[in-house]
Amino acid sequence: MARQVDYECMNCGYELSSVDEIFWIDDGLDIHIEPLLMTTSAISSEAPVKGYFTRYYCYDCRKFISKFVIFKNSNEISDENIITLIEQYDDSAKIIQFDDVFQKCLECGSDLASKADYSFVLDENDEFHIGESVIDFPESESNKFAGEYHGFFCSQCKKQINKFVITQNNANFTDEEIKAVLKEHTNDLTIFIRRDYDLCPVCGEEIYYLHENSTCPSCMEERLTITNITMMD
């Protein structure tokens, strides 16, 4: 299930729609960018290349930046070919990030197959929740920290490998404080990754995910306001 959020600037009338999206490259080397639904999730799981797709905004360049985070299911398509396909997909500025480094066992180095992908959050009451998709726990200033969980299993070491990607840290917890919370809810090895902010590939300045209260990219004076939220199944 994906969530579409519509925004409007009450000063200049600028409108923006944001949808939870994924992408995949099929066997014919065609790129698909679609809302994160049960049907598209099932299709992407069989594709040789899949991943997350997000649009950010650079206020310095005054343009949107596309970000592709790539998870490979097959070695039949080289990294170089994937980069070329994505770069040629359209004329937008792009950030292309491979996630292969986190799909090897920390102990034996074996390639790992993904077994589960969830979202998680530590809420304002110190309660820890894990859900089935990122839309289960939308970003909120009341969350202490939140992010994405990816579960792997090493058949050689017979261990569950847990990867947590922190995407929100409103409480400004240190790495050790976040690790302490995560260890209460995981077993065996835990891979802890903090997601760094992204820089514009054109000008090098920080880019932003537009949401409620973001500065309007058109007039640069008012904040965006949510006008409608639609759940897509």
Rank of each mutant, 00 (worst) to 15 (best):
E124Q: 03
H129K: 08
Y118W: 15
V101M: 15
E141K: 07
K179S: 13
D91P: 06
S114P: 06
F153S: 11
N170M: 08
E139N: 03
S92Y: 14
F145T: 00
D117T: 14
S155H: 08
S142Q: 13
Q88S: 13
N170W: 03
L106S: 09
K94Y: 12
F173I: 00
S140F: 03
T84R: 15
C105Y: 03
G109V: 07
E107K: 10
V101G: 05
P138S: 11
S114T: 07
K179I: 09
L106P: 00
K158N: 12
Y118H: 10
N169Q: 01
D91K: 15
T174G: 14
K158W: 04
L182Y: 04
F173M: 02
E76L: 12
K183M: 11
K158Q: 13
V165I: 09
I166W: 00
E148V: 10
I83N: 00
F164G: 04
N170H: 14
H129D: 08
E148Y: 06
L106A: 07
E127Q: 13
I161N: 04
G109A: 05
E141V: 02
L112I: 08
F102A: 06
F128D: 02
S155D: 09
N143T: 03
V121K: 03
Q168G: 05
F128I: 00
I83C: 14
H150R: 14
D126H: 04
N81G: 05
V134M: 12
F137S: 02
S142T: 15
K144N: 01
L106H: 10
T167Y: 08
N162L: 14
K163R: 12
E139G: 03
V121T: 11
K144H: 10
F153N: 13
I96M: 12
I178E: 04
A116N: 15
F153V: 11
D117P: 02
G109F: 10
L106V: 11
N81Q: 15
I86N: 10
D90Y: 11
F153M: 13
N143A: 09
N172V: 00
F152K: 02
I161A: 01
F152D: 07
E132C: 15
D117W: 11
A93K: 03
K179F: 05
D100F: 10
C154Q: 03
N169P: 08
E139S: 13
L122K: 05
D117C: 12
D91W: 12
S133R: 14
S92Q: 09
L122W: 00
Q156M: 10
K183R: 12
F164V: 12
Y118S: 15
F102D: 03
Q168H: 08
C157H: 02
P138K: 04
F153T: 08
D79F: 05
I178T: 03
H150Q: 08
K144G: 06
S133T: 03
A113K: 08
E176Y: 04
G131V: 09
I86H: 07
L112R: 07
N125I: 11
Y149C: 14
D111T: 04
T84V: 08
D136Y: 12
